[in-house]
Design a protein around this nucleic acid. Structure first.
Length: 337
DNA sequence: GCGACAG
DNA sequence: ATCTTGTCGC
């Protein structure tokens, strides 16, 4: 009995969600607040985090949430925490945070409690920041709730405030030459909501970078670019790779009975090396029901459009084997600062 | 009915 | 987000 699939939120729920976004938005800071952000070389920046949530096949509510921390500028993984979760809210464009953010916050809290020395100085988030229907995407949401500097990095343009992925936009993309090239995403309001970034020399489709929290757009873009070994910034890419890997190791392949060894949620190994697995503290057993917001399901159809995206991904596949392998990993590879 | 739709 | 093999290119 899989937990029932979430249903489409009621209008009332959507109203509450919008109100929550407006409330939290008042706390968002859209400028640089850290010393390293002012430095041309980001001197002082040592840890960059990345978060992602990967899903289980057809299950609309089972997923693996991952938080990784990479050293900067080496971009080596120094901390990892992957964790199976039960999603309670459906995906609704404009409300991604209500689906994923509770689990991302939990990952940050676990890090704060167990290895505060590994707390990232900035977090790259898979999704938008202020480039959003109401100027408060998941990167802003996570940033405000954790008070960590956050950058929104989306792979597709969210068409809001007059922004359109039309022929004009595609022309601008074609004009991007070298990795690091950008063009501003100006909404009808005249505000620059974000930047399209050619993140890699051989990358066709740009990334859409926007401010999440406690960072300027300029720094957000420069940092994102400096984190790209491939099209997707390494912190997000590693979080994605490891969360997907965790699912494959834990659930095995759907069609093979040999992999029936399903570890239930107890098996979640937090991180640090002490061979003595601390197991689950005691927090994930009973989530407060008054999550307030939840419900409903929804799935999107893939659109038969561009085939270029796969080109970039293939480029990554051909070379990512250098670090994609991780046995039952000891989470971090460096000594605490 | 048609188009849009971060992850 | 997820489903998947081969294929082309350096």
């Amino acid at each position: 009995m899989a937990h029932k699939a979430a249903q489409w939120p009621s209008e009332e729920t959507l109203l509450l969600w919008k109100r929550e976004q407006a409330r939290l938005k008042a706390r968002m800071v859209d400028r640089d607040t850290e010393a390293w952000q002012r430095d041309p070389t980001f001197s002082g920046l040592q840890r960059v985090g990345g978060v992602d949530v990967s899903f289980v096949n057809g299950d609309s509510d089972r997923a693996c949430a991952s938080l990784v921390v990479l050293s900067y500028p080496e971009l080596k993984v120094v901390y990892e925490d992957s964790h199976m979760v039960h999603l309670k809210a459906p995906y609704v464009s404009g409300f991604l945070a209500f689906r994923e953010v509770p689990f991302l916050v939990e990952l940050v809290q676990r890090l704060q409690e167990k290895e505060p020395g590994f707390m990232p100085q900035v977090l790259l988030v898979d999704g938008n920041g202020v480039l959003h229907q109401r100027g408060f995407g998941v990167a802003c949401h996570l940033g405000v709730l954790t008070d960590l500097p956050c950058v929104g990095v989306a792979k597709k343009l969210l068409q809001v405030d007059g922004l359109e992925n039309n022929s004009l936009h595609k022309e601008k993309i074609m004009l991007l030459q070298a990795g690091g090239d950008t063009f501003p995403l100006m909404g009808n309001s005249g505000t620059v909501l974000g930047m399209a970034l050619k993140s890699h020399e051989h990358s066709t489709n740009p990334l859409y970078v926007s401010v999440g929290h406690r960072v300027s757009l300029e720094v957000a873009v420069r940092l994102t670019h400096h984190c790209c070994r491939f099209r997707i910034p390494e912190p997000i890419r590693q979080a994605d790779i490891r969360s997907r890997d965790y699912i494959r190791r834990t659930l095995g392949h759907p069609g093979s009975p040999a992999q029936r060894q399903e570890r239930s949620q107890k098996e979640q190994r937090p991180k640090v090396c002490p061979k003595d697995g601390p197991g689950a503290p005691a927090d994930q057993g009973r989530p407060p029901e008054d999550y307030g917001r939840d419900s409903s399901t929804d799935l999107k159809d893939p659109q038969p459009g561009f085939q270029e995206q796969q080109k970039d991904q293939q480029l990554e596949r051909t070379e990512h084997h250098e670090d994609s392998d991780l046995p039952p990993p000891p989470t971090w590879v460096q000594s605490p600062p």
